[in-house]
Amino acid sequence: MKPLAIVTGVGPGTGAAIARRFAQGGYRVAMLARTVERLTALEAELEDSLAVPCDVSDPAALTAAVTDLMDRFGAPKAVVHNAVGGAFGTFRDIDPKVLETNFQVNVMALLHLARLTTPAMIEAGGGSLIVTGNTSAQRGKAGFAGFAPTKAAQRILAESIARDVGPKGVHVAYLVIDAVIDVPWTRERFKDAPDDHFIAPADIAGEVFHLSQQPRSAWSFLAEVRPFAETW
């Protein structure tokens, strides 16, 4: 039986690319997202994949989805938390409820995923939990008050989980994506930007997969990817 990979936030960019990469790597990929049509199309494209419509900000729905997957296929070998809630604006401009919602997606969903999956991975002899982040996890720019605090909390939570379950055989890593991801809406927003301005979703997916496959003698926790022309 193929090992199980659970991927949240399977949208048209990074999430779909991650699902494809794990499918290419021999995994049965369970794809979680709210958009049923997109998931169904990917399920038809990827052999042995599973479309799992789910709002990860709903703890009951997330628990039901993940529990069902593990009942059917056993402990996952890899879990990728790619779902993200974001909103731009200063602390004066944002609706506080938006920050609360983003906290549910970025932080609480990670907490629930870890609680649901890592005990089974430990019992099965190991696995990986990879979280996709961005530079908002490391700094709070004025216009990012609607979600940067939640990404920073997400990174710290991931580190806490890593320090707990790492010695028990589960590799937790946090990937900072310091780039504009190459998807249609970013191309529209940055019409005059050169190709070197963007990071390809497939290349992000390649690094996520690489982190999930690292040997136990050389695990990374905090990793970064950015285009070669990015100023940092």
Rank of each mutant, 00 (worst) to 15 (best):
Q154M: 14
A51I: 01
I181K: 05
T63A: 15
T35W: 04
V208Q: 11
Q214E: 13
F209W: 10
P149K: 01
P194H: 06
E230S: 15
A44R: 04
L4K: 05
S128V: 10
R34I: 06
R155S: 02
F209V: 14
G140Q: 08
G206K: 14
R155A: 12
G26Y: 02
D48K: 09
F91W: 10
E230A: 13
W185A: 15
I6E: 08
P76C: 07
A16D: 01
D58V: 00
G169W: 01
G133W: 02
H210Q: 04
V56G: 07
V84E: 06
F22R: 11
A148L: 07
P194R: 08
P96A: 04
K168Y: 04
Q24N: 09
R92S: 15
A83G: 10
E123D: 14
G89E: 03
D48L: 01
V225M: 10
V36K: 13
A41R: 13
L175C: 02
E230T: 12
A124Q: 05
I6H: 00
A17H: 10
M108L: 15
L113T: 09
I18N: 06
R34M: 04
G169N: 03
T186S: 10
T8M: 13
A87P: 01
A205K: 11
G169M: 06
R72G: 12
V180M: 13
L222C: 06
S212V: 07
V225H: 02
S49W: 10
D95G: 13
A41N: 03
G89W: 05
E47K: 12
T150P: 14
N106G: 06
E37T: 15
V180P: 00
T40C: 03
A124N: 05
T63V: 10
G206R: 13
E159M: 13
K2R: 15
G206N: 09
W219E: 06
G206V: 05
S57L: 09
A30G: 14
C54M: 11
T118Q: 08
A148V: 02
P194W: 05
D71N: 14
L113V: 08
R20C: 02
I161K: 03
F22Q: 03
S212A: 15
D68I: 15
M1L: 13
G166I: 00
E207K: 11
V180Q: 09
F91A: 12
P201H: 08
L50K: 05
N134D: 12
M31E: 04
A33M: 02
D58K: 07
G125R: 01
E100T: 09
I181D: 07
E37I: 09
P184C: 08
L32T: 03
R189W: 04
D55C: 01
V29E: 00
A229Y: 10
L62N: 10
P201M: 15
V7D: 02
V172C: 08
V36N: 11
D71G: 15
A65V: 03
R187Y: 06
A124I: 01
F228T: 11
A60I: 15
V176W: 03
A229V: 15
Q24F: 07
A120P: 05
S136H: 08
F103G: 03
M31N: 11
A65M: 11
V208Y: 04
F91R: 12
F88M: 15
L50C: 09
A83P: 05
L111I: 03
Y174Q: 06
P227S: 01
N102P: 02
N106L: 05
Q138T: 11
A19H: 15
I6M: 08
W185Y: 12
V7G: 07
E47D: 02
